[in-house]
């Protein structure tokens, strides 16, 4: 691996890889491990391997998906676990009622997302958070495009329903 390529194309997307690994594993330490292992793997890749790469981002995301799946299999974890350690990273740090409310809502929405079936959750993550095209999502998750579109449609519909229900509950309690 050429240091310049690594520095320009791979290292800058480490946060994206981390978020994807976090979405898949549901665990901060494991997501960190996955990213570290993926970066090492890419860094140690041979020149021949590097020459065949068309999109570094897609390749790294595929490696992240595979490594996360390995982790999940080895740990026999359930993918729908709540994200531990993420709630503290919300930007609203001010100790105000509004910030607290925002934190609660954010945590609730994350939980909604984590409760989605795995495919829907990952498609939604790649589209709504990483802003990827359908083609990229197809390549990364290795599923047909129509499945990507159907999964996104179902995921958004489910989230919307949960938001409406939570909003009704929230309004009723205030």
């Amino acid at each position: 691996m050429n240091w310049t390529i690594f520095h320009q194309h791979v290292y800058p997307i480490r946060h994206k890889l981390y978020r994807f690994a976090l979405r898949m594993t549901g665990s901060v330490p494991e997501a960190e491990d996955v990213v570290q292992e993926v970066l090492e793997r890419v860094w140690k890749s041979s020149e021949v391997q590097s020459e065949g790469v068309q999109s570094w981002e897609a390749w790294c995301m595929i490696l992240t998906r595979n490594r996360s799946l390995d982790k999940l299999r080895s740990n026999a974890r359930r993918s729908a676990k709540p994200l531990d350690g993420v709630a503290e990273q919300t930007p609203d740090g001010a100790d105000t009622a509004r910030a607290a409310e925002a934190r609660d809502m954010a945590e609730q929405a994350r939980r909604f997302m984590q409760e989605l079936p795995e495919k829907q959750r990952l498609v939604m993550h790649l589209r709504d958070i990483e802003e990827m095209s359908y083609e990229e999502i197809t390549r990364i998750l290795d599923i047909p495009m129509d499945q990507v579109k159907v999964s996104l449609h179902r995921a958004r519909k489910a989230i919307r329903e949960k938001l409406v229900a939570a909003d009704v509950h929230f309004v009723a309690n205030t």
């Binding site: 480490r14 946060h15 981390y18 976090l22 901060v28 997501a31 958070i129």
Partner: peptide, 15 residues
């Protein structure tokens, strides 16, 4: 609410 959540998720960084 939903789009703010997405924004905050996009801001999550690797430690």
């Amino acid at each position: 609410r939903w789009f703010r959540i997405l924004q905050s998720e996009q801001a999550v960084k690797s430690p």
